[in-house]
């Protein structure tokens, strides 16, 4: 028997993990693990997922895990993958599972290196749009207008467009996803698993602690991110961009919900100025128009 959305029953994230209630990253992790199965190595740099595993000698992961320094995920994963191949292992996945800080900021160099070399790994950035582990500081994935402890009056700069940076490395596969669309996420991981070379998945994972919303609303906020156009779902396979079916309706501006629907639940946007909000809306509009052009829909 399968779970809803056709997800397999088997669990690789065990009860007893130490994530906060309503953690979006943990929901993503659970789905990703189901899609990858038991022959998977997780390489995890410093981030919330370091903590989520639990404390030695326990672990909430039912697959092999290697913990490594903050900026080293892509390189360590490349080493694991190359070594397993060299030692004759077949049919396995090596996942670098990193937060946005470990991906957008301090780990960008190693990520770029592995992407350019087309190392055979699946790099997954779970994006909670700030450094959670150290207590909610801005990262280059933090959106414009958002409060963090290092942007107490709201961030002034836009979120970095990481997927484009990664796909500019000519990688075979790069895609976005978020937890409110588990089937979309699951299928993207399944697809990535079959591809040799460097695969990149960027998952928006709402964080009730850092975004300041009620822990029961994680999935709803993830869904609103898509419905307002804040988070577009698409994939780039060998340079070809395709909008994911779950996002197609929202290419049409008239079918999108107003951005306020997404922002209003989150206290991190409470002090956002109208100017910054207008700038965010402009960026969303521009981003979607660009996606349409690149998907050759216009």
């Amino acid at each position: 028997m399968k779970l809803p959305f056709g997800l397999p029953r088997e669990e690789f994230l065990l009860p007893g993990h130490t994530a906060c209630p309503g953690c979006g990253a943990t929901i993503a992790l659970r789905i990703v693990m189901k899609a990858l199965g038991p022959r998977t190595v997780f390489v995890i740099p410093a981030c919330c997922s370091t903590v989520i595993q639990g404390i030695f000698p326990g672990s909430s992961f039912a697959v092999p895990v290697v913990n490594i320094p903050f900026e080293a995920a892509a390189a360590v994963a490349a080493g694991v993958s190359a070594a397993l191949e060299q030692l004759g292992e077949k049919d396995f996945s090596v996942v670098a599972w990193a937060g946005d800080g470990g991906t957008f900021d301090i780990g960008l160099q190693a990520l770029s290196g592995a992407a350019e070399r087309n190392d055979n790994i699946l790099y997954i950035c779970y994006d909670n749009e700030m450094y959670s582990n150290t207590g909610i500081q801005r990262s280059s994935a933090t959106p414009i207008g958002a409060w963090t402890t290092t942007t107490p009056t709201g961030k002034r700069e836009h979120k970095k467009d990481l997927l484009r940076i990664v796909s500019a490395h000519h990688v075979p596969y790069a895609a976005t996803a978020t937890i409110a669309f588990p089937k979309d996420l699951y299928e993207k991981v399944r697809k990535a698993r079959q591809i040799r070379g460097f695969k990149f998945l960027h998952i928006l994972t709402p964080c009730p602690v850092g975004w300041r919303f009620d822990a029961s609303k994680t999935v709803e906020i993830s869904r609103l991110a898509v419905q307002t156009g804040y988070w577009a779902l698409y994939e780039i396979e060998h340079g070809k961009l395709r909008i994911s079916p779950a996002f197609t309706p929202y290419l049409d501006k008239s079918r999108r919900k107003p951005i306020d629907e997404f922002l209003k639940h989150q206290l991190r946007f409470r002090t956002m100025t109208p100017e910054l909000k207008a700038e965010l809306e402009r960026a969303i509009e521009e981003g979607i128009e660009r996606l349409k052009r690149e998907a050759e829909l216009v």
Partner: peptide, 26 residues
């Protein structure tokens, strides 16, 4: 052998760490 032409020494040692975890001579 697999020769990984890394983009820095930080990554060189990181690759060796990953490979050694997998049981390879690095």
């Amino acid at each position: 052998a697999r020769f990984i032409r890394v983009e820095s020494e930080h990554s060189a040692m990181s690759v060796c760490v990953g490979a050694a975890f997998a049981g390879a001579r690095t």
